[in-house]
């Protein structure tokens, strides 16, 4: 029973990490209709900047505080140089451009910081753990991470649903041509959304730096998971991204933890082992295919 609780918490935590990265992307994708494959690379840059700034200042919180404006600046530079010229273009051109950016950023990061994985120490205030079950400490930092993710989710919910900017963002996700015609400066709105997305990617990168290794290409594998989350949730929907992320996190973690045991009950051990080995990594893709089969526009499609 304790194991189930801990594994649920683990799944929640993975979901929160995925949500932090997905939230920014789903907004950019939904509101601006922009396919930003380089979002994962921006997340990686966030992690690297955090590792570098925390090392430089010797203080986790100061480093974290500096990382956010730095990733925002990096994102806005990309926007001004490249993305701005690709709005309202064939999404395939956006894919090509942002794919090129991934190649460049991955290689650039390796050139600047080297290929070795680097790491960040857990801040002293959040080091240590609580014993949730005998023999296992649940690291406080992970609990804090869950808290931070929930706080971000709540904040985004407030901004999107209860502010003027949020209203425009929602309107943009539904019909950007219409709100442009209504005299809203769509360029400025896009800049706000994109800045928010870039900052969230950077924040996610910085927050995971103490538990995951910071290495070149770390954003690429996450990118696919994040797209899975967004599509399950429904493009452009923060609520969808949140629930999609939790669903993916929980299914993946619980499936890994208890799936093999369940299979053992159903078939002979060697067949179960073979099936388990091929099924577990497929779980989230099965989930996505299943969701799209039942709801072809995700769980929370934005009304258009």
């Amino acid at each position: 029973m304790a194991l189930l609780l801990v594994q649920t918490l683990n799944g929640l935590q993975l979901g929160i990490i995925l949500f932090l990265i997905s939230a920014g992307l789903t907004l950019v994708f939904g509101v601006m209709n922009f396919v930003n494959l380089a979002h994962g690379a921006q997340y990686m840059v966030g992690a690297y900047l955090a590792a570098w700034l925390i090392g430089l200042t010797g203080n986790f919180w100061l480093g974290l505080a500096l990382t956010l404006p730095a990733t925002l600046a990096f994102g806005l530079a990309l926007e001004a140089l490249i993305y701005r010229h690709l709005y309202n273009r064939d999404p395939l051109d956006q894919i090509l451009a942002t794919f090129g950016l991934i190649l460049f950023i991955d290689e650039g990061v390796k050139t600047i910081w080297g290929a070795e994985p680097i790491s960040v120490d857990t801040p002293a205030a959040l080091a240590g753990g609580v014993a949730l079950m005998p023999g296992l400490l649940y690291p406080i930092y992970r609990l804090a991470l869950i808290g931070a993710g929930l706080a971000v989710a709540a904040l985004l919910y407030l901004i999107v649903n209860h502010t003027r900017v949020g209203m425009r963002v929602r309107a943009g996700a539904s019909n950007s041509a219409m709100i442009s015609a209504l005299g809203i400066d769509i360029g400025r709105l896009f800049l706000i959304v994109f800045g928010l997305g870039a900052t969230l990617a950077g924040l996610a990168g910085a927050l995971v730096a103490p538990i995951l290794s910071v290495e070149p290409g770390m954003g690429d594998s996450v990118l696919i998971l994040v797209f899975v989350v967004i599509v399950i949730g429904g493009v452009g929907s923060i609520r969808g991204a949140f629930l999609g992320a939790l669903l993916v996190g929980l299914i993946d973690t619980l499936g890994r933890a208890f799936g093999p045991a369940l299979l053992d009950l159903a078939m002979n051990p060697s067949a179960a082992s073979q099936t388990g080995r091929s099924l577990t990594p497929m779980l989230i893709y099965l989930l996505m295919a299943g969701v799209l089969f039942v709801r072809p526009s995700g769980l929370f499609p934005v009304k258009r």
Binding site: I82, H85, L86, D93, Q94, L96, A97, F99, G100, L101, I102, L103, F104, I105, D106, E107, G108, K110, T111
Partner: peptide, 16 residues
């Protein structure tokens, strides 16, 4: 060895 630094921007330019 750093082919990404060259291929990447080339793709971006074609896309633009």
């Amino acid at each position: 060895e750093h082919s990404g630094l060259w291929i990447g921007p080339a793709l971006v330019l074609v896309a633009l």
